[in-house]
């Protein structure tokens, strides 16, 4: 029996007068890597912000590990990596991690473990502002790994990374999932779908498919997730009530 780490019910979010999420419901299981796939601007980031509890909601509920999203007991159990690296450019890799570790109450061993996990040992003393885009986002990822969260929410963590590193990161996501962590990874690149245990396909604020990659492919009778996505859109699964969509 798989427990759900995240349960979203009838979630409605408006940003700047526009209804970004028009009322969606789904669950994310523990111990699996769930991929949130959809084109740019379909509401992936807003949805992730709602799960982490930094997004104002219009209505609906988001529960993480049985608690309302963003509530105090969750603050050291949920790790969140934004698309932009949220770290200090004028500090070194180690200084960044030491600072966040102190905020979280994590020891210096945890700092070293995190740096090793994202393979930044050789750059540890470098100032983050001098690193490449991919390295900076790995620093941000290392911060999220510091307190060994039970739910890990990653917004496009593999964009622009070297294929070898990308493979290693996905292997790490699966290792984390095997240890019981619920990993939610967003991507606008459909070819990352095959690396996920489970997929949420998203378009215009709606979930158009929620299943394993295999079953999504079989149901559509195609070989590629991109084709399955097209088939779903054309069959009308993506059409819902459009009220409020500008």
């Amino acid at each position: 029996m798989v427990n759900n780490a995240v349960e979203v019910r009838d979630l409605v979010v408006e940003r700047g007068g526009k209804r970004v999420l028009p009322g969606i419901s789904f669950a994310i299981p523990e111990g699996q890597v769930t991929g949130l796939l959809g084109p740019s601007g379909c509401g992936k980031t807003t949805l992730m912000r709602a799960i982490v509890g930094v997004q104002k909601l219009r209505s609906g509920t988001v529960e993480v590990l049985g608690e309302p999203a963003g509530s105090r007991p969750l603050r050291d159990r949920v790790g969140y990596v934004t698309q932009e690296a949220s770290v200090y450019d004028d500090l070194s890799v180690t200084e960044n991690l030491r600072f966040f570790a102190r905020v979280l109450g994590v020891s210096d061993d945890g700092v070293q473990r995190s740096i090793d996990a994202v393979d930044l040992g050789a750059n540890a003393a470098q100032v983050v502002g001098n690193l490449s885009g991919g390295q900076r986002s790995r620093v941000s990822l290392a911060v999220a790994l510091l307190d060994q969260p039970e739910v890990l929410v990653l917004d496009e963590p593999t964009v622009g990374l070297d294929p070898v590193l990308r493979r290693d990161l996905w292997a790490m996501f699966h290792r984390l999932a095997d240890s019981g962590v619920a990993v939610l990874v967003s991507s606008h690149v459909m070819d990352e779908a095959q690396r996920c245990d489970r997929l949420l396909l998203m378009r215009e604020g709606r979930i158009i498919a929620d299943d394993t990659p295999r079953r999504i492919l079989d149901a559509a009778g195609v070989a590629e997730i991109e084709d399955a996505f097209l088939a779903l859109v054309e069959s009308g699964a993506a059409d819902g009530p459009k009220e409020g969509v500008a």
Partner: peptide
């Protein structure tokens, strides 16, 4: 604006 404040506020700070 860099997102670090949001990150800190999602931690036990």
């Amino acid at each position: 604006s860099s997102g670090t404040l949001e990150r800190l506020l999602s931690m036990p700070m």
